[in-house]
Amino acid sequence: MHSPCPPHMLILSVLLTLVVGCAMNPYTNRLQLLLISEEEEINMGRRAWAESLSRNVTISHDPAQVDPVRRITQRIIEAAKQSKYAERAKAFEWDVNVIEADDIPNAWVLPGGKIAIYTGIFPIAKKESGLAAIIGHEVVHALARHGAERVSQRSVSSVGVSLASVFLGMNPAAGQLANLALAGGVLLPFSRSHESEADYIGLLLAARAGYDPEESIRVWRRMSHGSKGSRPEFLSTHPSHDTRIADLTEWMPEALAIYKQSQKAPDAALPPLRSR
């Protein structure tokens, strides 16, 4: 007959899982909880990418839009291959697409290095060095395995709330409240730390790739001027524009020192939007 697992053994196994699933970011020394393998994460990203592109999106084939995006991405990946992420940067199957959506000033990345740039980000980036700040940010999200970390955090949070519900006899309303507290107190701060990490390391990679890092500050100023009523920072997945500008300013001397030693990249203006 099986005896039930003693509570201390259960706690020990959970702790062991967490310890085994931890990694340290080589730039910021931040501990990361990673409960899924890199291979599994990359496969998830690959499937999500295929599905995203098969949906109702218009992928741009206009060389005026695509060429600078591919050129910048390539330079930043080459810089990443000389960085602390060299092995991962060499192993990823990088891909980038421009999606025609002039009203979306955004860009995103999936695990394994699948990057999408909306044309709506062009007026914010303005020129190639501005777009390098955006692409550098996305490249770092992939290299730092932020996707896997978020999946891991949410898994642990869900299990934690479920266990608490069972053992503390919480009713559904209390469970909802616990979820909200967890989101505001744990998941959102982690999300903002991922964004800051991507801003910081992305700034260094873009500088190493030969793009003027000071343009990143102007990008976030333009984003700030163009934004319509953003939510308070503590309720947001991202740091506020002001926080990002202050952080970038603080990191600028380090980035400028790297930029000075880099082989300078072309810095042409990005094409105007067709819809404007």
Binding site: M44, G45, A48, D103, I104, P105, N106, A107, W108, V109, L110, P111, G120, I121, I134, H137, E138, H141, A142, H146, G147, R150, V151, R154, H194, A198, M223, G226, S227, K228, G229, S230, R231, S236, T237, H238
Partner: peptide
Amino acid sequence: QSLILEVSPVACLG
């Protein structure tokens, strides 16, 4: 909800 990592939470410009 976790895989896509965006550069900005901004949905549209004013």
